[in-house]
């Protein structure tokens, strides 16, 4: 049963299918908002198969082992994070006190792999993309951490399942975290490197950033890892900030869960269709001057409320 859970449902296979599906949803919505047709539903899968079949080229100067292993590390990290997140019930597949921190750390790994992948490709565009990835990482990571941990603080529990249980018992308290949800959604754009924070892979400036030298199946794995990261990070936000419908029967809960993920994907698609790409220094300023104070205020608010509740 554990193996079934890990490999089939709600494990790797489910994640791959959901990742590709929501990539389609994202691309289709983006296209429709731009008054275009958009791709057919199987396009992400077709792209993936095509990339797998393509020739793989590894730059001569690149560190071969790192170059090849980075996509796998990114994929593994995102998938492992998924097992600790409660999806459509208050239970996660695996759970322990402090797993919320572990999930956050597992989710920072892909960004680090982007950096290492870009840096060890040794091409100029990759290097610049890698450095930008890391610069951006330092800007959005702190607000993201503060925002995501605010509900944990309120629930006084460091396991994701525990937080979900707490908010299912006190659903109104979840509304308190709305500013943090906003901060988390915006920083998520930075984590996923989407417009307006797609600075590390801005195609008109640095071609494809860290991925410039990647081809064939390695690129396919990276893209799959990013698709899955959307689902995992979306699930994390949903579990933290929208813990509604977790007590429903499993099938209904599953539908509600899919709706919630669609909501996150839709917000990302809308935000990237109405904004221009920022410059790296504008992005850092925005994260530190606006997002960080908001997240900090949320933490203070939650501390005060928690004081009242427990006194």
């Amino acid at each position: 049963m554990a193996l079934f859970n890990i490999f089939i449902f709600p494990g790797i296979l489910f994640l791959v299918v959901a990742g590709l599906w929501f990539e389609f949803v994202d691309r289709r919505m983006y296209a429709r908002m731009q008054h275009r047709q958009g791709p057919p539903w199987f396009q992400p899968l077709a792209d993936f198969i095509k990339l797998i079949a393509k020739e793989t080229i590894i730059p001569e100067n690149a560190n071969r082992r790192l170059f090849v292993s980075m996509p796998v590390v990114a994929l593994t990290a995102t998938i492992s994070a998924f097992f600790y997140i409660p999806l459509w019930s208050t239970h996660a597949l695996y759970s322990f006190q402090g797993d919320s921190i572990v999930v956050m750390y597992l989710l920072t790994l892909p960004t680090l792999t982007f950096f290492l992948a870009g840096w060890y490709s040794t091409s100029l565009y990759s290097t610049i993309g890698a450095v930008r990835s890391l610069t951006q990482f330092f800007a959005y990571e702190i607000p993201l951490f503060m925002a995501v941990l605010a509900p944990a603080m309120l629930a006084n529990d460091w396991s994701l399942a525990g937080i979900a249980t707490y908010f299912t018992a006190h659903p109104l308290l979840a509304l308190l975290n709305v500013p943090a949800l906003g901060v988390a959604l915006v920083t998520l754009l930075g984590k996923l490197e989407r417009v307006p924070f797609d600075i590390p892979e801005a195609e008109t400036e640095v071609v494809a950033g860290a991925f410039t030298e990647y081809t064939g199946r390695h690129l396919a794995l990276f893209r799959l890892a990013i698709d899955i990261e959307v689902i995992v990070a979306g699930s994390l936000l949903v579990a933290m900030f929208l813990p509604f419908g977790l007590a429903l029967p499993a099938w209904l809960g599953f539908l509600v869960y899919l709706l919630k993920i669609t909501f996150v994907v839709a917000v990302i698609a809308i935000l990237r269709s109405i904004m221009a790409r920022l410059r790296i220094e504008q992005m850092v300023n925005f994260c530190w001057k606006i997002l960080a104070p908001v997240a900090l205020a949320q933490l203070l608010l939650n501390l005060v409320v928690k004081g009242f509740l427990h006194s």
Partner: peptide, 18 residues
């Protein structure tokens, strides 16, 4: 811009499947 993109989300695409 937000209103414009949301309005287009439901509109028929301007392109054709040539």
């Amino acid at each position: 811009m937000l209103g414009e993109v949301l309005a287009h989300l439901c509109a028929k695409p301007n392109t054709i499947k040539y």
